[in-house]
Design a protein around this nucleic acid. Structure first.
Lengths: 343, 343
DNA sequence: TTGAAAGCGCTAACAA
DNA sequence: TTGTTAGCGCTTTCAA
């Protein structure tokens, strides 16, 4: 599979423009030290030839890499695909390409992905998945990312990650509080929680917010049923099954993300439980489809695309002495899936 | 931003294992000509050091590239994110990483993305977006991809692309026929079509299937209202608005993908039009959420993840003398959004 | 079976 | 302002 000449190379451009390799390189990467006339000529030739820099060669030669790595738990989860869209659009504006890796919510896997990205000398690594709480492997990943940063690599994380890196922090705790507040305001007390696995910081933070808001109303979260399941649609469906079976008195379900809420709604529909009259359901994230469900889903909007875009923009900026932290807002989207508790 | 030593290099492994660079290289890429004992030792050392090959160096040195490019229209469209998940999982098994590019349904943009991938000497390019019908720029993209293949690059497309490359062909035409057949069987005659832009081969093929099935029943598709709009949720919402306003007699809407169907359902709900009793709605693709909508969406399932996986597997195989073509099946998923026409 | 050495295409000193 | 040249980390002849 020996690949021959496919794309034109810098030498081709240089020759044709009658300049040296160095000059051509400078002209094309817009560095100074080239006369405008020459620069323009080189660029014209490059365009004419359809020249695109070979990222491998550039990276290997120590130039600024034009690839960023994006690590998501699962790309076909709308939460992540919306983040990815944000990352990709910013990357595009900067002439950067995006390598996507699945961690599949497996810290071991995530470590391997990080190693690959580091070995490939990417410009930056965006970790979009939730952090893990107190996990050995996470520590290995952390060490790897820290080393990457020490040698000039840039890292930005989305979510709480116990990592000295720029971070976009989704407003998980306040979002949880807003949602709990909303349900309590509607008169709910028998609230069940469809939770993702509690080794995810996202889950922990959302629960913390819920706990705080409930405590303000004299409700102890530990008295409420909590079913821990996969942080996915099917996990939500399963959690709702168990809630119906084991805690039939519940009047509301807080699902810790929209995927789980969608699963819960499916289960409730299958059981003929009317939403919201018999059971309110709320989620987190406001994925695109949430507003189009029937009943439309009450949830807390997190600006996913913006989060992805911001994460990459941070990572592309010069590093600051201390990590930047950008908090997202959240917006309670009250829709049709939540209503007053039945008299 | 001069990056120092981050990841261990092959020399590090070689030194530590007490062998030459060449031997280490051979041992790690599993080529022959290395004694089993030595190979094992080298691999052990590599694992111990957490060594991962530098893809840039490998690619530049003429080794088989470990990156594939994936071009989608829009990653936060479930159709594409499910395809991407399939591609990524196969890539992972093969130790390959995936670069994702948005073409944003802009042929010009797509061309630029292809050029970048070619310049980066990727192992293969998977074009997941629909082809375009008779477009100048498409021709440029075609030329670029053909040249890439001529020099050993591998290309696989998903959809009809007028390109001499391995292809996964979604069963668009038969799917369209199945859906039209389904509606006619329910007694519908006043069928309106919410169509994506007709420069997409996907749209053209789905329409062809619909036309064929309708013709079998003596219905001329040209007599039916067709609203052309963006191939997205919002496009579907817009198309439904126009259908309601301009063709109030319609009893069914065929949306040419699920995203458009979801938009159409939203519009109908907003106008208080009951589905399916007043209006049936059907879509294409069977994105994950289709079954969880209320009413659940009647649609035609295309195995997106499998399509992505197959496309990459084809691209990774040795090229055959003639392009392979793998047809997907389709499966009519009759759900709650379609019903008999009201008496 | 192993090793030495020549590049892959580019950037970044260093020279002119 | 421009050109020359030494690598970046790897694979792959070619020799031993």
């Amino acid at each position: 599979m020996a690949r021959g000449r496919t794309a034109p190379r810098l030498v081709d451009v240089a020759e044709r423009a009658g300049v040296s390799l160095a000059t051509a390189s400078r002209a094309l990467s817009g560095r100074e030290g080239v006369s405008p006339a020459v620069a323009e000529r080189v660029q014209a030739v490059a365009a004419e030839l359809g020249y695109v820099v070979n990222a491998h060669a550039r990276s290997l030669a120590g130039g600024s890499a034009s690839i960023v790595g994006l690590i998501v738990h699962q790309i076909d989860d709308p939460y992540f695909s919306e983040i990815a869209a944000g990352v990709i659009s910013v990357a595009y504006e900067h002439g950067i390409t995006v390598q996507i890796c699945h961690s599949a919510r497996d810290p071991e896997n995530e470590l391997r992905q990080i190693r690959t990205l580091v070995a490939n000398n990417v410009r930056a690594i965006i970790v979009a998945g939730s952090g893990y709480v107190g996990d050995e492997v996470e520590t290995a990943a952390k060490r790897e990312l820290a080393a990457f940063q020490d040698t000039g690599g840039r890292v930005a994380v989305i979510g709480r990650h116990a990592l000295r890196a720029d971070a976009v922090l989704p407003d998980n705790e306040d979002a949880g509080a807003a949602l709990a507040e909303h349900l309590v305001g509607l008169g709910h007390r028998q609230i069940a929680i469809a939770s993702g696995t509690v080794n995810l910081t996202t889950v922990v933070d959302r629960l913390a917010g819920i706990e705080r808001a409930l405590a303000d109303h004299g409700i102890d979260i530990d008295d409420l049923p909590l079913v821990e399941a996969e942080f996915t649609r099917d996990g939500g469906a399963y959690a709702a099954e168990r809630i119906l079976a084991e805690h039939p008195g519940s009047t509301a379900i807080i699902a810790l993300n929209d995927a789980m809420a969608i699963g819960a709604l499916a289960t409730l529909r299958a059981h003929g439980v009317a939403v919201p009259s018999q059971m309110s359901v709320v989620g987190f994230d406001d994925v695109t489809v949430a507003a189009d469900l029937a009943p439309s889903l009450t949830t807390v909007r997190l600006p996913m695309a913006e989060m992805g875009a911001d994460a990459l923009m941070m990572a592309l900026k010069d590093p600051s002495s201390r990590p930047r932290r950008r908090h997202t807002g959240h917006e309670l989207m009250v829709r049709d899936s939540s209503g007053p508790v039945r008299a």
